[in-house]
């Protein structure tokens, strides 16, 4: 039982960073109704900008974090201009395919400049753990969780307390109506991309900082984790993305402990498969659908 709870604690903390990735995917999907496969690779590029700052200028954690976020935002904007702004209305498949092409391109660019398999990255914290009763909490995991939770709250404030958030929600719900409310859809999309990339940049810094090393494969990894967490939660729902990320983290932690590391990803894919078959709307998708049906009944 102690093990099980310990795994849940670890899973929730690691899952908080998956949740950030899933929120990034959800923001873009919500506004565009298109999948951006390049999301992971663009924040991977940002993380390599951070690595560059670390290796070349010997700068510490904070500077690396800032460089990572700036790099991720610039790469995200590049993706938005090429895959989404240039390919306008109706061409959802074209956008997705071109985001795949940009994925390959970003990975190539990074491997040209960073040919080794792995590079060092400043660790998030030293390997201390805090003991609470029978449980251990790793400092780096606590930092990760605190940052993710803080950002999620900030995002919630931005979405529900500011006009920018209002415009973003309007565009994601009904772009044709939003246009007649004087909302500039192109501009909202642009900033949604920048915001999603910034969140992804922070997530990348936290995750890579925990490993203390980075590889170009991080892009693939981040796209997978973010996508799976988003699908588990229900596409287009931010609370769903958070729950999906946490669930993925917990399932991974449990399967690592009880089955072994080699089964970790297998368990994640099995979970995704079960959801797709038995609950295709995800955790929150069903809630949203139910609420919509209830609303329609009242009409």
């Amino acid at each position: 039982m102690v093990d099980f709870i310990q795994n849940c604690l670890d899973g929730v903390m690691v899952g908080s960073s998956y949740a950030l990735l899933a929120i990034g995917f959800t923001l873009i999907f919500g506004v565009m109704r298109r999948l951006n496969l390049s999301y992971g690779p663009s924040i991977m590029l940002g993380a390599f900008v951070g690595t560059l700052v670390y290796l070349e200028f010997q700068m510490g954690g904070f500077a690396v974090a800032v460089a990572t976020v700036i790099g991720a935002v610039l790469a995200g904007i590049y993706v938005e201009r090429l895959c989404f702004w240039a390919i306008r209305q109706g061409a959802a498949v074209a956008s997705m395919v071109s985001s795949f092409a940009i994925w390959m391109q970003l990975e190539e660019i990074v491997t040209v400049f960073f040919p080794e398999r792995t590079y060092p990255f400043p660790p998030l914290a030293d390997r201390t753990a805090i003991e609470i009763g029978p449980f251990f909490l790793k400092l780096e995991n606590l930092i990760m969780f605190a940052c993710a939770a803080g950002l999620t709250v900030l995002l919630q404030v931005l979405l529900y307390r500011t006009r920018f958030g209002l415009a973003l929600r309007a565009v994601s719900e009904n772009p044709r109506a939003a246009r007649f409310m004087g909302i500039n859809i192109g501009r909202v999309t642009f900033w949604a991309f920048a915001l999603a990339s910034a969140l992804g940049g922070v997530a990348a810094y936290l995750i890579i900082g925990t490993d203390a090393q980075i590889t170009p494969l991080f892009g693939l990894w981040a796209t997978f984790k973010g996508l799976i967490a988003m699908m588990l939660g229900g596409m287009g729902s931010i609370p769903g993305a958070i729950l999906g990320g946490l669930l993925l983290g917990v399932v991974e932690a449990q399967s690592t402990w009880y089955l072994g590391t080699e089964y970790r990803d297998l368990a994640a894919y099995a979970l995704l498969f079960l959801f797709l078959v038995f609950r295709p709307g995800g955790l929150m998708g069903q809630v949203a659908a139910e609420r919509e049906r209830a609303a329609l009944r009242r009409v």
Partner: peptide
Amino acid sequence: LRIFQRMTVFENVWAAQHGL
């Protein structure tokens, strides 16, 4: 109708002041 169904009534009108 093209109202924003998942927003409150207040937010629907509030959003319409955008771009003034």
